Amino acid sequence: MDGSLSQFMATLQRRKARKVRNNGKFDKTSLSYNSEDRRPEYSFPELTDKELEEIKGKIKNNLTSHNRLNTIISFTAFIILIIIIYFLIT
């Protein structure tokens, strides 16, 4: 093997830099753009305690109804499967 470790490390760094440049500026490991000069700015409204509780309640109600629907669908599919197996055996 010809060359030294420093040459090999430099080659790896150049390959990595070329790959990042060719793939764009999006870093898939941190799921963000590789830009030190720009930071994301979010403009979320400030919520009062009452509004926050209303939003939490809506999320909880949606989650409860979603879980109930999943339970009903699973139970119905299980009953249908049991009926099909019963008629196949008899």
Rank of each mutant, 00 (worst) to 15 (best):
S35V: 11
F8E: 09
I59W: 09
K16T: 10
L63R: 14
K56V: 04
T11D: 11
L31Q: 15
R14W: 02
G24F: 01
F8N: 06
T48L: 01
S4M: 09
E36R: 14
I73A: 07
T48A: 00
N22V: 00
S4R: 15
T64P: 00
F87G: 00
F78I: 11
D37W: 14
S6I: 09
G24Q: 02
L47Y: 10
Q13K: 14
K60E: 08
P45T: 04
N23Q: 06
K28N: 08
N62T: 04
T71D: 10
M1P: 05
K58W: 04
L12P: 00
R21N: 05
L69Y: 07
R68P: 00
L47F: 09
T11A: 13
E54Q: 14
E41I: 05
D27W: 01
I83L: 14
T29Q: 14
K25Q: 05
T90M: 13
E51W: 02
R15K: 10
R21A: 11
L12S: 01
L31T: 05
P40T: 03
F26Q: 00
M9G: 02
A77P: 00
D49F: 04
T71C: 02
I59Q: 12
L31N: 15
T48I: 00
D49I: 02
E54I: 02
T90R: 15
L47H: 05
L52P: 02
K16N: 10
H66R: 12
I79Q: 10
R39A: 14
F44Y: 14
K16H: 12
S74F: 07
T76W: 01
N61I: 08
E46I: 14
F8W: 13
K56W: 05
T76L: 10
M9Q: 15
F87Y: 10
F26M: 03
N70S: 11
E46M: 13
F75G: 02
R15E: 08
F87L: 12
D27E: 00
D27P: 01
D49W: 04
N67W: 05
E41L: 04
H66S: 10
E51Y: 04
I80Q: 09
E51V: 01
I79R: 07
M9D: 11
F78D: 09
L81Y: 07
I89G: 04
I80M: 08
A77Y: 05
T29Y: 14
